[in-house]
Design a protein around this nucleic acid. Structure first.
Ligand SMILES: [Zn+2]
Ligand SMILES: [Zn+2]
Ligand SMILES: [Zn+2]
Ligand SMILES: [Zn+2]
Lengths: 160, 160
DNA sequence: GCGCGTTTGTTATAATATTACACCTCGCGC
DNA sequence: GCGCGAGGTGTAATATTATAACAAACGCGC
């Protein structure tokens, strides 16, 4: 987490077994979709899974190789692919990326984002129908909804 | 509008009299808040009002002076100020800024954004209470909600 | 006029993201 | 097996978005 909270530690990163399970699921998902889960894509996804919250593209770039950074297009291309597959979500208000929490890809999602420790929580957007009504009233056809709520998580609310 | 739609013209820019009214209202708002509406801030607000939709920071920078661009910090400072006063909203998914449509500042707002012509429509976020419930369930305290729905406006839906 | 906090000017640089083009790799038709 | 074409990758350069740091000027209360 780039915006680490100094007051305490959070341990939201995935356990190793969960991570390899997620990687395997991703391979299956791609195979079923007739897409190729290449090594760049898998490595990018792995780094996002390892992160304890939304991670910046350049943090992925820096960690990509043991011996040195990747070139930006390598990672940005992988990020686009993973986002299209629904395996990750882009957090617009942070310019960052987070692994999707669910097993149904792709889907719309809302996020709670802690301004102190950087942790994120994915949730189902409530009342999408009401947003659609606003859109219809303005003759809009919605393709994608971004919903991001910034604030403080329970742990961080304690220490101002 | 930077993402201009080639198929037709939109004319959403403010009429001159409306614009000067808005500028005057902004001066009043700042005076009442004990804040200074300086010339940089007013010029930045004017350019945002003149835009026919969300406008990028660097488009403001380029148009700032008749004879040449402003320096970035000048405009970014003004944008921060205007956003804090609630006179403009930042559109996260576009890295752009749009004048607030209402007369009560500041306030949360949702946006419908046309991917074709770039036009935006501001609307009241429906069922904020339901989002708050999701937050409470996760022990989050929300400070600010970003809601941006991307899609096609009525005019642009016609020409696929 | 003086002191003090705010605002601005200026330079430089950081952080985020894309374009362009050459090459490579894989699956498919033959 | 071979050639072809689509999709994927490597690489260099560049575009776009945003901030840091510090000095100078300004506005207000005294
Ligand atoms: Zn998800
Ligand atoms: Zn937190
Ligand atoms: Zn508004
Ligand atoms: Zn449109």
């Amino acid at each position: 987490m780039s915006n680490a909270c100094a007051h305490h530690d959070h341990h939201h990163a995935l356990a190793a077994d969960t991570k390899s399970q997620r990687l395997a699921e991703a391979e299956t998902l791609c195979a079923q979709a007739g897409e190729r889960m290449t090594s760049s894509r898998l490595r990018t996804y792995e780094l996002i899974l390892e992160a304890s919250g939304p991670i910046k593209a350049y943090d992925v770039i820096d960690r990509f190789h043991p011996q040195g950074a990747a070139k930006p297009p390598t990672v940005y291309r992988a990020l686009s692919f993973l986002e299209q597959m629904g395996l990750i979500h882009r957090i617009e208000s942070l310019n960052a990326f987070v692994a999707c929490d669910t097993r149904d890809h792709p889907h719309a999602a809302g996020f709670l984002l802690c301004d102190c420790c950087g942790q994120s929580v994915e949730f189902a957007i409530p009342n999408v129908a009401d947003i659609e009504v606003s859109a219809t009233n303005s003759h809009f056809q919605i393709k994608h909804i971004t919903l991001e709520a910034r604030g403080l998580c329970g742990a961080c609310r304690g220490h101002a």
